[in-house]
Nucleic acid binder design. Structure first.
Lengths: 126, 126
DNA sequence: CCGAATCCTACTAGATACTG
DNA sequence: CAGTATCTAGTAGGATTCGG
């Protein structure tokens, strides 16, 4: 089947729906957290350590968004010290394959893109 | 095959490579432009009209980025009045399928996500 | 241990006006 | 026609501190 008939999926409502979702998963940490949680249930501190460079703030915010969107389940255990576990919901897991498709494309074409960037000479000014 | 072995694609170098690419295609207009150009070669004004809401500035900036990354070819005809045509390169076209995969996921799960958002009750404070 | 609250900075995108 | 220049507002993300 040709791409032609299907790019309407992207252009759809002017791209608004798709972009809303894309914005959500592109916000620098979401995809990384989802990919990390794909390995299994993790606690807050585990996530914080397994994702280098993330701040507590962004980890909290991103997890809240994922929870709100139903991609991640948050379980609080009433213990001392407190324990909170995060895991992917089925919907969250279903994001992995398309994300991998894009990741595969990215990895595959990074050399080309970087070469193109290096060779790029702006025609006017800069 | 399991996702497990492959999420390394996402986590790879801490997600930096993938995120660099994702940031590029998530910047609100890129995917829309690529999807529009998938229909064929277009001039600047055509693009401007076919993509509702985009400003001249953002169209120019996004096209420049795409050109720099080798996803879009820009052809200037030395005529009066000036004519500039944009078309996808093979690499640009190769972005369509994985983008469609993600778009399909988005469209499919938007109802679930919106329902989840509506039902979401923050547990603490807010 | 798991956050919430606050402050701060840099970048993005939009509006508008001007140019070769 | 196909841009460029300038200005501005909004937001994402980082650092730090405090609380249960």
């Amino acid at each position: 089947m040709s791409d032609y008939e299907h790019t309407c999926l992207i252009r759809g409502d002017g791209g608004a729906t798709l972009r809303a979702i894309l914005d959500q998963i592109c916000n620098k940490w979401t995809l990384l957290i989802v990919a990390t949680l794909d390995r299994g249930t993790l606690r807050f501190t585990d996530l914080h350590q397994q994702i280098p460079g993330i701040s507590q703030r962004m980890l909290t915010l991103t997890l809240r968004n994922l929870e709100r969107d139903g991609l991640v389940a948050r379980t609080v255990y009433a213990e001392v010290p407190p324990r909170v576990e995060y895991e992917l919901t089925p919907v969250g897991k279903s994001l992995i394959p398309p994300a991998l498709a894009l990741a595969g494309w990215a990895i595959e074409h990074v050399p080309h893109i970087e070469a193109s960037r290096a060779a790029y000479q702006p025609k006017s000014g800069r």
